[in-house]
């Protein structure tokens, strides 16, 4: 059975239809990419799935349970975690203290969070381990710096670490590669692959198609809130409608 099934998901803002009957499903252990031009409704889709905005119609079934209309924190505690596109860390706290917050949450405490450390053990140490995992240099001062002073590359990693702390079943990444340099992306890709190998299902929303196609086996393209095609990266790129959506008619 599919892990997450989205049926006829529709979202209207006033008179504007941001999502128009999106259908898709994702199996456990898969990596799926979502692409689409700016304003096509990718982030709205995530917001609907994670409960940050309420969908107008449709069903979102996660592990056999309809989660549409549930509060965001409840959805997180079922195992769906997301990153935010716009990075706003807890800027008044040091980087490693940023991770105390997810580790304090009920999900981390119940399931143990990352490597079971959220339930027992010193959260500070786990936070530092986590940061090292996503590529912070442990011996340097970086993990102790105020999060507000970190550069974008570290912030993206910090955001990813925040999700890892929750021990997600399904991870939804909203443009984790955007704003990063080529070398930074090159170091992020293996991280995503490693995560997927450890059993985390991943949905990636991305503009960097080349890097996305390295990790995602299946890609869905949306435009103006409608799904236009779904399939392997090659199929999607060959599709006329996708070309049209990106390049204009």
């Amino acid at each position: 059975m599919a892990m997450l099934t989205v049926n006829r998901l529709t979202k209207k803002f006033g008179g504007i239809t941001a999502l128009d009957g999106i259908d898709f499903s994702i199996e456990k252990g898969e990596v799926m990419g979502v692409i689409g031009p700016n304003g096509s409704g990718k982030t709205t889709l995530i917001n609907c799935i994670t409960g940050f905005i309420k969908a107008t119609a449709g069903d979102i079934i996660f592990n056999g349970r309809n989660i549409r209309g549930m509060k965001p924190h409840k959805i997180v505690n079922l195992g769906i975690c997301r990153t935010f596109q716009i990075m706003r860390p807890y800027s008044s706290l040091p980087a490693y203290k940023n991770l105390i917050i997810p580790l304090y949450g009920p999900r981390a405490r119940k399931t143990g969070g990352w490597r079971g450390g959220g339930r027992h053990g010193d959260r500070n140490i786990i936070a530092l381990d986590l940061l090292e995992e996503v590529g912070f240099e442990r011996e340097s001062k970086v993990p102790y710096k105020l999060a507000g002073t970190l550069p974008t590359g570290y912030l993206k990693r910090l955001e990813l670490a925040r999700c890892l702390a929750l021990n997600p079943d399904l991870l939804i990444c909203d443009e984790v590669f955007s704003g990063l340099s080529m070398s930074e992306i090159a170091s992020m890709v293996p991280l995503i692959e490693k995560l997927n190998k450890s059993g985390v299902t991943i949905i990636m929303i991305e503009h960097r198609l080349k890097e996305l196609f390295r990790v995602a086996r299946r890609v869905m393209a949306i435009s103006y809130g409608e799904k236009i095609v779904e399939g392997s990266p090659e199929e999607v790129m060959a599709n006329e409608k996708v070309k049209e959506a990106y390049l204009g008619a």
């Binding site: 994670t50 940050f52 509060k71 965001p72 924190h73 997180v76 505690n77 975690c81 997301r82 935010f84 706003r88 860390p89 807890y90 800027s91 008044s92 706290l93 203290k97 940023n98 105390i100 917050i101 997810p102 580790l103 304090y104 949450g105 009920p106 999900r107 981390a108 959260r123 925040r162 702390a165 929750l166």
Partner: peptide
């Protein structure tokens, strides 16, 4: 303390705290 950090986190970015599974 950890609870205090969560409280301060809400001031900095409440959405992110929600996305961490905490009922703000």
């Amino acid at each position: 303390e950890d609870l205090g950090l969560v409280i301060r986190g809400i001031k900095d970015n409440d959405q992110s705290v929600r996305a961490s599974g905490i009922n703000i």
